[in-house]
Design a binder for these strands. Structure first.
Lengths: 191, 191
DNA sequence: TAAACTATGGAACGATCGGTACAATAGAGG
DNA sequence: CCTCTATTGTACCGATCGTTCCATAGTTTA
C-alpha cells in the first residue's frame, strides 16, 4: 500500500490531544485543521459525521487503549496484585502525572455528556469492574472489591481535577501513592 | 430603593445554574437571556464585562457561600469533629447527592481554566487548608491532617465525576460515607 | 495511457456567536 | 405633572462557528 498521505488512524491521536486541550466546543474546526495539518476537505473525508464523529473516534480509541493496557490485564493476569501495580503505573504514565486530563472525565462534566453518555458510562463501568475483578482474585470479598475499585477510580479522577486546579502534579502523585498503599493493605489483610 | 425590577444579586444564582448546565462556552447569551428572563441590555447593564464578568461573579458567589458555610466553620468551630460532619452534610446537600456539578471543578478541566485560574486554585486551596485545620484541632498531626484533607477533597471531586458519568447518585453517597468513616477513624485513633 | 477512486484544499453558506448602540420605557423625587 | 436616571428590548455589527461543495491532485487499477 506504500504511502498514503494520511490515514484516519494517524489523525485520531492528534484529535484526542486537541479535544483534551480545548474541550469539545472549544475545539473549532480551524484549530483542528491547524493541529492535524489537514484541511476541512480531508477532515470531512475521514469523518463524514463532522466533529461528533471525530470525538466518537477519539473515545473509541481511548476505550481500545484502556481495554488492552488496563482492563484486560486486570481481568486476566495470573498475578492480580502485579496487575494492579501495573495499572497504577500505566495510569500515572498515561495522565502524565496529572499534567494530562482525562478526556472522558471532562466530557462527563461537560454539556456534551448526553451526546456521548454511553461511551462515558462504559469507560468508567468497565474500569471499575475490571479492577474489582482483580481485587477479588487477589482475595477480597466481592463487596470489598467493588467498594475499593470504585474508591480507586474516584481517587484517580478527583486527583486529576485537583492537580489541574492547583497546577501541582504532586497532588496526583500523592493520590496515586495513597491508593496503591490502600489497595496493597487491603490485599494483604485479605478480608 | 424599594423595588428595583431586578438586582444583580438575584441574577447570579441563575447564571450559576446556567454555567453548570452548559459550561462557559456552551452558555450562550441567548440561553442566558432565556433562563434569567433578562435581555442583553439588562445583562450588559449589570455585567459590563460580558460573559467573563458573569462567570467571575458566579465564582465569587460560590466562594462566598463556601467561605461562610464550609471553610469558616471548619476553621473556627469549637468542636472540629462536628464541623467535619457538618461539612459532609452540607456538601451532600449542595451537590444534590451528586446530581449537581461542581462548577469550579468543571472549570478546572475546561479550556477556560486559565482565565479563572486564580479563583479555581483559591477554591480548592482554601477548602483543603480549612479542612486540614479542623483535623489538626481534632488531634491529627499536621502532616496527617493535610494528607487527609487532600484525600477528602479529591474523593468529593472524583465522586462528582463518577456519579455524573455513571448517572448514579449512589456512587456519590458511598464516597461521602466512606470519607466520613475514614475521617472519623483517623480522629479516633488520634495519630 | 485511460479510467476510477481516494485524498486534499479552500471558497462559500447560513447560523450563531459575543458585544455595541440606542431609542423606548419605567419609577422616583421634585 | 415634569424631569431625570435606571432599566430594558431590539436592531445591528464583525467574527467565527460547523458544514457543504467542488475542482483538482495523487494513487491505483485496467
Amino acid at each position: 500500500m506504500a504511502k498514503t498521505i494520511a490515514e484516519r488512524a494517524d489523525v485520531v491521536p492528534l484529535l484526542a490531544e486537541v479535544f483534551r486541550e480545548y474541550g469539545f466546543d472549544g475545539a473549532s474546526l480551524s484549530v483542528i485543521g491547524e493541529r492535524t495539518g489537514l484541511g476541512k476537505g480531508s477532515l470531512y473525508h475521514f469523518f463524514p459525521g463532522g466533529k461528533e464523529e471525530m470525538a466518537a473516534a477519539v473515545l473509541q480509541e481511548i476505550d481500545r487503549w484502556f481495554e488492552a493496557e488496563i482492563y484486560k490485564p486486570l481481568r486476566e493476569a495470573t498475578d492480580p496484585r502485579a496487575a494492579i501495580d501495573g495499572m497504577l503505573r500505566a495510569v500515572d504514565d498515561y495522565f502524565r502525572s496529572g499534567r494530562r486530563i482525562c478526556l472522558v472525565g471532562a466530557f462527563a462534566l461537560d454539556n456534551v455528556r448526553d451526546r456521548f453518555a454511553a461511551a462515558v458510562k462504559g469507560y468508567f463501568a468497565e474500569w471499575r469492574s475490571a479492577l474489582a475483578s482483580a481485587l477479588e482474585r487477589a482475595g477480597c470479598s466481592p463487596d470489598l472489591a467493588h467498594a475499593l475499585a470504585e474508591e480507586t477510580v474516584v481517587a484517580i479522577q478527583g486527583a486529576l481535577v485537583l492537580a489541574r486546579a492547583l497546577d501541582d502534579t504532586a497532588v496526583f502523585a500523592r493520590s496515586i501513592e495513597a491508593t496503591r498503599a490502600k489497595l496493597a493493605a487491603a490485599i494483604d489483610h485479605k478480608h
